[in-house]
Design a protein around this nucleic acid. Structure first.
Lengths: 209, 209
DNA sequence: AGATTTGTCTAGCGGTCGCTACACAAAAAC
DNA sequence: GTTTTTGTGTAGCGACCGCTAGACAAATCT
């Protein structure tokens, strides 16, 4: 059940006709990712993109569709790479509590990593957006992430790992607020150790024996 | 040592010459505040402003300077009115803990109040901004707010109200992250009761006896 | 080789941006 | 009244926005 489009990597035998592309699509996409991550959707103009990606506007439109479609792809790539640590932590740790503790710890490191823009693309790249549906695109991802946290917590309550009276929704919202607040503070210049201290004390709201 | 410009309110005796202004400056300013609050600095165009304020562009420029100067004034007004609940709570409550608890409770109500745009203008109105100094304007306010929280907490530690080992910086950052996260979630559609539950459990990280 | 397919380049479209020159209107000063 | 001062309306400036037509370049197919 593969999509069939398969990123048109040139791995698919010699299905090349016509003039070959003069740039590496994945590399250019990564450059666009960094630009959108740093400046957001609207503040990144197409001429910014073409300069950073090192290609002309017609090449960009031929390879990625329009600006909006490119952004969709960037968001998908981001969610699967730099933004995947949360989902991974939740899947790999044995309890919701340990998963969320690890997610917050990793967020502190990730959001302040000088190797790329600070903070989280999904939190910041489409605030104050003229296009309502671009804003909705990221909003839905944020709300879906909080919902995923909540259902993971509920699973632990059902399994007896967490006390029956635990407020799953509030705990999930708190973790979400921590992520969003840490992302904002990373953008505002907070250092990694500061966010790590924050992530650590934040776990004190969880029910303890 | 008054500035001399004194907001040119017509209270200052009959110092009117020339044609009088055809609109109420404070009302127009409030309209601009709402527009910037809802859509942010860059996504609010001058033609948006003139339409909403009900005046022509030359009138806007004569009364408020340019778009940037108008935004500065809007931020100042916001900080003194809708955005003043935090400072007020901190000043009026006897302890840092009670002040911050009240601040978070009031934020839940304020950020979801349907009488005006959701969330906090200072958190959201200048993210992804082409103009670096507009972004810095609000960033400095956010960081100053966190610093104010921290020094209030330190005062309670010095006074023996809080235990000596208390991590003031982390507690302040946590409160700041809660404010920023609640603002984001209000914009993302969270209801008042949800944010109130969040504000309540968030106080559990404070040292307790 | 020619024909076909596809990518790249130059140049520029219509639209919006923040902002302002200029003529006119409405008040006080004389 | 006339002059001076200040606000308002029209109309449009130069710059940038996202995007694309059309000519040319570089590959495969026959």
């Amino acid at each position: 059940m593969v999509t069939g489009q398969e990123t048109q990597a040139q791995g698919g035998a010699g299905r090349t006709r016509g003039r070959p592309r003069s740039f590496d699509r994945a590399t250019a996409l990564e450059k666009a990712l960094m630009a959108f991550w740093e400046h957001g959707y609207e503040a990144t103009s197409v001429s910014d993109l073409t300069r950073i990606m090192g290609i002309g506007a017609p090449s960009l439109y031929a390879a990625f569709g329009d600006k909006r479609t490119l952004f969709d792809e960037v968001v998908r790539v981001y969610a699967g790479t730099h933004g995947a640590f949360g989902e991974r932590a939740l899947a790999e740790e044995p309890t919701a509590r340990e998963g969320i503790a690890r997610m917050l710890r990793e967020a502190a490191a990730e959001y302040t990593d000088p190797a790329h823009p600070y903070g989280c693309l999904i939190v910041h790249a489409a605030t104050n957006c003229t296009s309502a549906d671009v804003e909705a695109l990221l909003r839905e991802r944020r709300n879906a992430n909080i919902a995923a946290l909540e259902s993971r917590i509920r699973a632990d309550i059902a399994a007896g790992v967490l006390p029956a009276g635990t407020d799953a929704a509030a705990l999930a919202r708190h973790a979400g607020a921590m992520i969003q607040g840490m992302s904002q503070q990373a953008r505002d210049g907070a250092r990694r150790e500061e966010l790590e201290a924050l992530a650590e004390i934040a776990m004190a709201i969880w029910p303890h024996d």
